[in-house]
């Protein structure tokens, strides 16, 4: 049962990779830098894991690791989305 659960996660992973390939090939070269910073911000989704670690009831080494992870992931998310927006704001057509 346990390996079946893992297999379901692999299933989701593989399908998402295919969706990713389809989407990204449509992004024009002009937007490749914002694509990188934006997708970078999305990879900050690890923040979800960091919240789960930092929010444990008992204070242990896991909490400390979670807190640092929290800081890293938040920088990734906030910095990534804001800088992408800052860049995309500049792309104008005359």
């Amino acid at each position: 049962m346990e390996s079946l659960g893992l297999l379901m996660l692999v299933y989701v992973f593989v399908l998402a990779i295919f969706v990713g390939f389809e989407l990204i090939t449509k992004v024009p070269p002009t937007l490749h830098t914002p694509l990188m910073s934006g997708s970078n911000a999305i990879s900050g989704i690890t923040i979800v894991g960091a919240i789960l670690s930092a929010g444990l009831h008992e204070f242990t080494v896991s909490t400390i690791l979670g807190l640092i992870a929290m800081i890293f992931a938040t920088i990734n998310v906030v910095g990534g989305f804001l800088v992408t927006d800052r860049m995309l704001k500049m792309f104008k057509k005359k």
């Binding site: 996660l9 989701v12 992973f13 990204i24 997708s39 990879s43 989704i45």
Partner: peptide
């Protein structure tokens, strides 16, 4: 890396987001 963490936490959201970024890179 985000996907791998998703596997640890058995969290589809992390797996999907990580896979999208992985494919992009």
């Amino acid at each position: 890396a985000a996907s791998a963490t998703g596997f640890v936490l058995q969290n589809n959201q992390l797996i999907i987001a990580g896979a999208l970024v992985g494919a992009s890179g």
